[in-house]
Design a protein around this nucleic acid. Structure first.
Lengths: 216, 216
DNA sequence: CGCCAATCGGTACGCTGTAAACTCCCGCAG
DNA sequence: CTGCGGGAGTTTACAGCGTACCGATTGGCG
């Protein structure tokens, strides 16, 4: 679908416009607010007009994902050290996912590996480029990229849910009740503990494990 | 909501029954197939009857998540080595999530940190117990648990999507076209490469980074 | 000019979550 | 025993969803 030509006439809509509107709605009201009718309204069109540009709603999600993937493509030259370069890319992924908290949900929602869009391909290409200085086989490099991006997406999934939650008093009360039961002593001991975010710490651990010699 | 007493009359339905039916439907037909009407039909009831046991559909997702979380609670005694114990728990998480591919999606779908159910609390308690032998502050232990489970959920999110996909020929053709363009040389070089799964490898890297002294 | 294909609109169908009001019927107070 | 409170389950209804199908419009090209 990435290769399908756009209209040749002169439309009042465009795929780019639709995707941007969808991303804006998702950013401000969540993924569930992204409905065909809603996006059409947003653009002053009728629902069915969108189907000139996408085949089904899932396509729209794919396009939204790739739209945001653009933010994960590093702009300038990569740091010369593979480690710094990889960290920089992981940070871009994290920041994009926190800016668009619906992102991981959209990825998880897609029934199968969504077709990779051009921005996602550029992102992957540059993730590989970051490892150029590393003496490793392609298979090993691929494993490293997967490990780092797996960690990043998991961390970001948790982080963005934590931010959305901010634990209303009700949940806290419930948690207290549970821990007061004494069934979870270690958890109880953790209730007041510092929960400063630890994305960077975990990333450091992972990279140290990959390459112990230049651990930080 | 976990504490709310169940009915005292004599119902033909039960919360447990509803949740099990929902998990079964999600397992075999995906999360989208879990609708109130569908589950009710599955149980020979009418849609609105379910609302005696849950307040809204999101509650059902929470209950399903905790139902599956039971499978991530280790049964016997934990390995004495914190490292082995942590690996064992991570494997349970992975296997449960692969058995129920909708799981990560359900977690991502929940608008905020869902209320922790009893099974999730037991899982967390035992994750902490696994680190008992480790000389570390509670904050550090919490960070370790988060790093490991972040990595695990990210890896499993990717893995289950890969399994669902198995890349139909169409996608492969598209990918070929993209890489033939020459814009992604490193990716192109990777096309035929071995993609053996690497969950264990990444987990080893992470644990080695956490504790270099007993690296494997 | 005539044609074609792209674009957009309208209508309709079967689905969704759930609010509101209803019918039962059990267990208990008098 | 009667009466009744209240919980279980049902019915109906509504607004919204994705999208199949068809018709109207229109601009570019032969």
């Amino acid at each position: 679908m990435w290769t399908r030509a756009e209209r040749k006439q002169r439309p009042t809509l465009s795929r780019e416009q639709i995707v941007r509107a969808a991303v804006a709605v998702a950013d401000s009201e969540g993924l569930d607010a992204v409905s065909i009718r809603r996006i059409a309204t947003e653009l002053g069109a009728r629902a069915m007009s969108l189907y000139t540009y996408i085949e089904r709603k899932e396509d729209l999600f794919d396009l939204m994902i790739d739209e945001v993937a653009a933010e994960t493509v590093p702009e300038g030259p990569l740091p010369a050290q593979w480690r710094e370069a990889t960290i920089a890319i992981a940070r871009l992924e994290r920041e994009a996912a926190l800016r668009h908290p619906w992102l991981i949900g959209a990825i998880a929602r897609r029934s199968q590996t969504s077709t990779l869009g051009p921005n996602m391909l550029r992102h992957l290409e540059l993730s590989l480029a970051a490892l150029d200085p590393l003496p490793a086989t392609p298979t090993e490099k691929w494993q490293i990229i997967r490990a780092v991006s797996d960690y990043t997406s998991g961390a970001v999934l948790r982080e963005s849910r934590e931010r959305a939650g901010t634990a209303g008093g009700h949940d806290v009360a419930h948690l207290r009740a549970m821990t007061d039961s004494g069934a979870y002593p270690r958890l109880t001991a953790l209730l007041g503990v510092d929960r400063r975010d630890s994305f960077e710490q975990g990333l450091r651990w992972l990279l140290n494990g990959i390459s112990p010699e230049d651990a930080s």
